[in-house]
Design a protein around this nucleic acid. Sequence first.
DNA 1: TCTGGGGTCCTCTGTCGA
DNA 2: TCTGTCGACAGAGGACCC
Length: 351
Amino acid sequence: MGRCVAHLDMDAFYVSVELRRRPELRGRPVIVAGTGPRSVVTTASYEARRFGVGSAMPAARARRLCPQGVFLAPDFAYYREASRQVMATVRATVDTVEVIGLDEAYLDLHAMPEPVAAMRRLAAEIDRTTGLGCSIGIGPNKLVAKVASDAEKPRGFVVMTREQACRRFAASPCGLVPGIGPKTVERLRALGLETLGALAGAPPPRIAARFGPRLGAELQHRARFEDDSPVSQERKVVSESRELTFDQDIRELERLEAILAQLVTRLCDGLVAQRRRGRTIGIKIRLDDFSTHTRARTLTEAVSSADRVGPVALELLRRFAPPRPVRLLGVRVAGLEPADGAAVEQLRLVV
DNA sequence: TCTGGGGTCCTCTGTCGA
DNA sequence: TCTGTCGACAGAGGACCC
């Protein structure tokens, strides 16, 4: 029996969760976005999307496009709780569940006798127990399932073979499939390849000449909806970071140092609480021209406390000596491991 | 209209030791 | 002893995702 994978994607998740506690806003354009002058839209309701508002758009632009929109500040603790509720319902139906973020999951259905009927029941069950809508795609691999779940949102339910996906999306832009982002779309366009069908059928040497043999082959696999990546329940956390974009750019090194110290404290409090530590300390700096720079140092032993991480981060910042005003500052600890021989399971992210 | 926060993974390059 | 090669690793940048 071949593989059978479902992708479950909650519809406009953050907005839908907000509407549960504010039902009077149903039917109105609701936009979850940060409050600062440089914040972006996290999620927009389908009513707001009709005004051209979309995820990752600057909130200021969203306000101009949709002045009558209801803007809500994100409440991630509330969304996490809603996500736990949804995923608990999913796990009650399916054994192998790979959770992606708060609102998505891949489900391995190969052992399920009637997977399509089971997924229809699951969507209804999520609606009944949480009041939230979802879209589900089912296919022979994660790639087909993912694109299928996106195809008819909201409350979509699409079942496809790989061949059907190839036919249905042959004329779609290459950026439709995950892993082909805006930059790659541009490079493909420069080769005259605008659609998935064109990319899938292009001579491999031509793609390899532009993208290298590995990435080139990978792009063509995706265009043909070929994907053998497993549905894996556990994702290993390899790094943790805290970063902050300032409302206004900062020039003074002393102010940056003080903010860096706060970020280190926030990061290390979390690491210590989770009994994790790491060997590589890094900083991230985005300048006012939006160029991003990272500096890192790997220590001989893993650390987690602010008084060990702080001085390293500070020295990296001083050595970089930002040549222009700074818009974002971040700190990161990578190469994470358990702090005290604790079980390896502590490194696993089980959302 | 300028572009968040928190992640993963890949590529390229330089260094170092076997 | 010198030189070339190779792999591992670290560092930096970038693409991409939710």
